[in-house]
Write a protein that binds this DNA or RNA. Structure first.
Lengths: 232, 232
DNA sequence: CCACCTTCTGACCAAATGGTCAGAAGGTGG
DNA sequence: CCACCTTCTGACCATTTGGTCAGAAGGTGG
């Protein structure tokens, strides 16, 4: 099971709607209570951190939205920084999954197409994750240094090597793999991070599915043709 | 004189280095004092807001870095929000300048090339501006609603129309102008906003000029060819 | 030199915020 | 049912932070 599937399963498990009420009457097993609350707090915090940033989000706000007393939030996460780190860990699970699908054997025509589709879908399904990640990097990436310089870098270097092999095989033009990846990341993630700008400029209240499709179509077309990858 | 030139001139006027000392002994004309301090405070605040975000930046920190008493900062900007807005205004001056160079008459081969170059240079020269803008949009763009829905949107629509005219002239493939612009913005601004990630992955301490050149070269090549613009 | 500005500043304050804690409430296993 | 966990919570606290203010210091124009 991929990290992303795992996250999806968690989301599905979430208390349905909760709708502001605090049912909390049925007897819950101790073992469940902890996991349930931790998950609930993390996903609430994730939303707020994405909307307001770390410093802009107060524990009181998280507690209120999660419909729990502040002290209870602090019972599970001993301090704000700890909660933030937990949110980051939760998010980063999903982050590098998609790159793995780019391998030497697959023709870039397929591999890049799938990757772009996956990244745009990620922006659509987990916009909070993307926003927190983006804000974190913009502010210096101090809390994700380890990941950036470690697993992500490894993945990045591997993928660059794959792209070079594609070039060597004559499957695409000799372009700079590092910057190509930067281009892919930025142009896909922008649909999560900059959605406020995009919707305003497109004159829509929120991103319709159609626009994500247009995005995938445009990015795929420009990148494939731009890299000299024949698609016929 | 373009907005950007204006900003450059201001930067040049800045007290040279200041180097932590507080000379402030020579007699200064009242008229100068205000403008000088306002500029100095804004540029200091700009750096800190870019690094730590609005809520993460304290007035005390701004005052300390600016080497002024906090009360003095508040003498010029009556509250933190006002200072932030002033910083935003200062930044946004420069923001839309470059798009103006894309017109119907210019062949996209030149126009896009110049635009990409200008945007990457902007990322290099004014990374703080880009970061503040990005964070602002990520967090909902509440403080720049007016600009987004007003002048920027106008400029955006105009430029889309220009691109459509290029397509009508047969100068490029029929691609989606809106999403092409999103792609151009994101892939160029990423060199400011995500510099922490990029330098880490490239294994450099900071962005060398060479990398900006590689970025321009890659983006230009992929976009021009990807849009079916013949460059010979 | 003087009356009148603008600029500057330390001292102060109320509110917000992260975090603590003692003890109540609830679940568990024998 | 009971001793022993874990979970829950209101009350409380120290610190941080944005912001005020009275009055000192500095510049200006006559």
């Amino acid at each position: 099971m991929s990290n992303k599937d795992q996250l999806k399963a968690e989301l599905a498990d979430m208390p349905p709607a909760q709708s502001g009420r605090k049912p909390r009457k049925e007897r819950r097993a101790l073992a469940d209570i902890r996991q349930e609350n931790v998950t609930h707090i993390i996903s609430t915090a994730e939303r707020l951190f994405a909307e307001k940033g770390f410093s802009g989000t107060t524990l009181a706000a998280i507690a209120e939205v999660a419909n729990l007393p502040k002290a209870n939030v602090l019972y599970y996460f001993h301090n704000k920084a700890g909660l933030y780190q937990a949110v980051l860990d939760h998010i980063l699970l999903v982050w590098m999954d998609d790159m793995k699908s780019m391998t030497e054997d697959v023709h870039p025509k397929e591999a890049l197409r799938n990757y772009i589709l996956a990244k745009v879908q990620q922006s659509k399904e987990y916009p909070h994750a993307s926003k927190i990640f983006a804000t974190e990097v913009i502010h210096g990436a101090e809390n994700i240094r380890e990941l950036l310089g470690g697993k992500l870098k490894q993945q990045f270097l591997d993928t660059c090597r794959v792209i070079r092999s594609w070039i060597a095989k004559g499957w695409m033009d000799p372009i700079n793999p590092e910057h190509l990846l930067f281009m892919l990341w930025s142009s896909t993630q922008t649909y999560a991070d900059f959605s406020a700008q995009i919707t305003t400029l497109l004159g829509k209240a929120d991103m319709a599915d159609e626009e994500y499709e247009n995005a995938v179509e445009l990015i795929t077309r420009v990148v494939l043709k731009g890299c000299g990858i024949r698609t016929v």
